[in-house]
Structure formats: structure tokens, C-alpha cells
């Protein structure tokens, strides 16, 4: 059941993410003339109380408008960057050698980035899942998967992340990303992955 929910959740998140991105992009195009009109109206209504010339007014209005627009775009970029960072946090997995829970140099780099994200997103708690390839014994792989998840967790704790934000679970060889029976599939499946709770 856990597996189902996990997959469904992931799909839902991805779909929602996609939808959001698309609708944002549309809004950018449509909202521009609307915003301009609103600004114009506001500027017009303030006409009676000011002594600005038409030209001055138009220039100020334009500047303000530009500023607001830049601000809005900046916020939007920040939002998108945040979203991308979050997606990257969730999607970027760390990988292991066969029968190993030792963090590779690459895994450490990824974990440093994850620690940064966790630092910037104090409200988020994370479940670290440890996984193995299909080779070897089910029970031993459960133990190995836990060591992988723990290795990642310990690294994040050493980077200053509060332990109570980081829970972990091993799925052993029960949830392969790639169902294949070949070295490529195995290396993909030997992983720790991160789920925002």
C-alpha cells in the first residue's frame, strides 16, 4: 500500500507541478496588458491632486510600472527557483556501490546541496529511503538499505540539520526504480531517495 501511495503521490506532485508551471507561463502573457491598464487608471485618478505635467506623469508612471513589473517577475523567478530547488531535492537521488553504504564523492556533493535546501526550508521534514538492487538476500538487503538511509541521514546531521527533521526507512530490494535484471538497472536501484513529509 505504501508503495502505491508513494507512486501516486509522486505522480500527483509531478502532474501538479507541470500544471502549475504551464498556468504560470500563461498568466505572464495575459496579465501584462491588464496590469498596465490598472496602473493607468490609478495614475489617472491621482491626476487631480498633483501638479505634474503630462510627460512627467507618463514617465513616472512608466518607471513605477516597470519597477512593479520587475518586482513581479523577480518574485516569479524566485518562486520558480524555489520550486525547482524543491523538485531537485526530491528527485535527485544518491547512489551506492554494490554491497556498500559508503557515500561516494558525488553522493556527498548532492547531500551538501540537500543540506542547503533543508537549511533554507526549516519547515520541511524529510523521510530518507534506503534501497538496494535485487541481487543478494532479501533480509540482508533490508539491513543494507537501512545503512544507506542512515549514512545519508548522518551526513545531513553533521551538516547541521536537526535529527528530528530526518526520519529514515529501508525498503531493501522491495521497490526497484528500474525493474530490469541488468547492471544498469541495478546501479539505478542502489540508492537513497528523499521524500518531503
Amino acid at each position: 500500500m505504501g508503495k502505491r501511495i508513494g507512486v501516486n503521490l509522486l505522480t500527483a506532485l509531478l502532474v501538479a507541478g507541470l500544471f502549475f508551471t504551464v498556468s504560470c507561463a500563461k498568466k505572464t502573457v495575459v496579465s501584462e496588458p491588464e496590469g498596465t491598464q490598472v496602473e493607468k487608471e490609478e495614475a489617472t485618478s491621482g491626476e487631480t491632486g498633483t501638479k505634474m505635467t503630462e510627460d512627467e506623469m507618463t514617465a513616472a508612471e512608466k518607471a513605477k510600472q516597470r519597477e512593479l513589473e520587475e518586482q513581479r517577475l523577480k518574485e516569479q523567478r524566485e518562486q520558480e527557483a524555489k520550486k525547482a530547488a524543491k523538485a531537485r531535492f526530491v528527485n535527485k537521488k544518491i547512489h551506492f556501490e554494490f554491497d556498500s553504504s559508503v557515500l561516494t564523492a558525488q553522493a556527498r556533493e548532492i547531500l551538501k546541496e540537500k543540506a542547503g535546501w533543508l537549511e533554507n526550508n526549516q519547515g520541511e521534514d524529510v523521510l530518507i529511503e534506503g534501497h538496494c538492487d535485487e541481487r543478494g538476500t532479501t533480509e540482508y538487503n533490508l539491513a543494507l538499505g537501512e545503512r544507506r538511509a542512515k549514512a545519508a541521514r548522518d551526513f545531513l546531521i553533521n551538516m547541521g540539520i536537526a535529527p528530528d527533521r530526518l526520519s529514515y526507512v529501508s525498503f531493501g530490494e522491495e521497490k526497484p526504480l528500474d525493474p530490469g535484471h541488468n547492471p544498469q538497472a541495478w546501479s539505478k536501484n542502489r540508492r537513497a531517495q528523499f521524500v518531503i513529509k
Binding site: 505504501g2 532479501t138 533490508l142 531493501g172
Partner: peptide
Amino acid sequence: SITLSPAFSSDSEWIAYTSYDQGKP
């Protein structure tokens, strides 16, 4: 869920196993 590793007691009255029923083994 995921349920694994059945083990019979020696008198076969009991069985022990691992399950992810509560989200973890």
C-alpha cells in the same frame, strides 16, 4: 503492504514475519 520472511515456531503453532503494515519493517 510488503510482507516478508515467514518463520514457523518449532511446534508450528506460531508464525513470525516482517510487514510494512505501519510503513516500516
